[in-house]
């Protein structure tokens, strides 16, 4: 297989704990879906489970395994790179996406933290530019790095504010 696209540089990886965050939400999601599909089958058959009744649950468990594996693989690929004039964010292994946002173009920098992220002490950084399509997020920022990066970005983009 051929070389895939890549951008070389001092990439900052996000915390691998983010893979656990993603795994947990994957597990919860697919368990709900699997159980939600299995229980009605059980009820419809008056408590007598046919062999194929377990298929949704098995499928859900398979998907959980795949999802967890991929979330670990994907987390390894998420990263950001602060360059002189722009911030570069990458994510995805199979579906690779690199986004470059010039510092002067950042309109809003958000930090969010969901309940599972809070358990692992991670935060998500989100940049908004004037273009709706360039939604850039960096999940899994440990500890204070999210705040530090935000303050840095705000300071840099203040000095390079460029309107729209």
């Amino acid at each position: 297989m051929a070389e895939r696209i890549d951008v070389t540089g001092e990439w900052q990886r996000i915390s691998m704990r983010y893979a656990s965050v993603e795994s947990i939400s994957t597990v919860i999601w697919w368990l709900i879906a699997g159980v939600g599909a299995t229980v009605p089958i059980w009820l419809v058959n008056d408590g007598d489970m046919p062999w194929w009744g377990w298929l949704p649950l098995i499928a859900a468990i398979l998907l959980i395994v795949i999802g967890v594996t991929f979330s670990f693989l994907r987390t390894r690929t998420i990263g950001y790179l602060q360059r002189d004039d722009d911030l570069l964010v990458r994510r995805g292994m199979l579906f690779r996406r690199f986004v470059a946002v010039p510092y002067g173009r950042m309109q809003v920098v958000d930090i969010t933290q969901g309940p599972i992220e809070r358990m692992f002490g991670l935060k998500t950084l989100k940049f908004v530019t004037a273009a709706a399509t360039s939604a850039v997020t960096i999940p899994g920022m440990p500890g204070d790095t999210a705040e530090q990066l935000r303050d840095h970005l705000v300071a840099v983009s203040e000095s390079r504010r460029a309107g729209l």
């Binding site: 297989m1 895939r4 690199f98 470059a100 273009a131 360039s134 850039v136």
Partner: peptide, 17 residues
């Protein structure tokens, strides 16, 4: 006027480089 630039490659594009 560009706000940001993105480069993307999915698995099929990846096979075709």
């Amino acid at each position: 006027r560009v706000q940001s630039v993105a480069m993307q490659q999915g698995p099929i594009y990846g096979m075709a480089r």
